[in-house]
């Protein structure tokens, strides 16, 4: 059965992607304050909700994730093949975890932390190999991954109930 989610999911995904960009600019003073830099991941939040709240796995989340990853590489960084692979990878791993988990606030939070870590670590490793960045691993963990998780968890806590309600209503 096709639900309205088929249309709402991709639209929301792209809104989340572009919101990442413009909110990063508006709050640049807070998000990228030396030495910390935190990366907004509203798109990842949307993907995690889609994977876990779509009960019969009917949504092509993986394909949309690859597409939105491609747009991210294309439009924001200009370096292809990083988020293009990282985002579908996250969808795949989340789907692997799904059968073992009881769906509630805390488990979803945990999965979200794991997903952010995987995405950021993947991007970091890839950029290091491509010589786009030259930071060392400790700097990455302390000054990028830590603040990123903190900021995104705060956003997650705020958005959990509204987004869940939205998904349950349209599903």
């Amino acid at each position: 059965m096709k639900s309205r989610l088929c249309y709402i999911f991709p639209i929301g995904l792209f809104i989340a992607l572009f919101l990442d960009g413009s909110l990063s600019n508006v709050f640049a003073g807070n998000l990228f304050k030396y030495p910390y830099s935190s990366v907004l991941h509203l798109d990842l939040l949307w993907i995690v909700f889609a994977v876990f709240l779509d009960d019969d796995d009917a949504l092509p989340v993986g394909i949309w994730a690859a597409f939105v990853g491609l747009v991210y590489d294309w439009y924001f960084t200009g370096i292809f093949g990083v988020y293009l692979i990282a985002l579908p990878l996250v969808v795949y791993l989340s789907r692997l975890m799904k059968p073992w988990l009881d769906l509630n606030f805390l488990t979803l939070l945990m999965v979200y932390i794991i997903d952010i870590t995987i995405t950021e670590a993947f991007a970091y490793v890839w950029y290091v190999i491509g010589k786009v960045v030259t930071n060392n691993l400790a700097d990455f963990a302390v000054y990028t991954l830590g603040p990123t998780i903190a900021v995104n968890l705060a956003i997650f806590v705020i958005l959990y109930y509204p987004v869940r309600q939205l998904y349950l209503r349209v599903n």
Binding site: G21, S22, S24, V132
Partner: peptide, 15 residues
């Protein structure tokens, strides 16, 4: 006008 900033800690880029 500035449309967006790359949401990444590795690239200080604006669009």
């Amino acid at each position: 006008s500035v449309i967006a900033r790359t949401p990444s800690s590795w690239m200080n880029q604006l669009v």
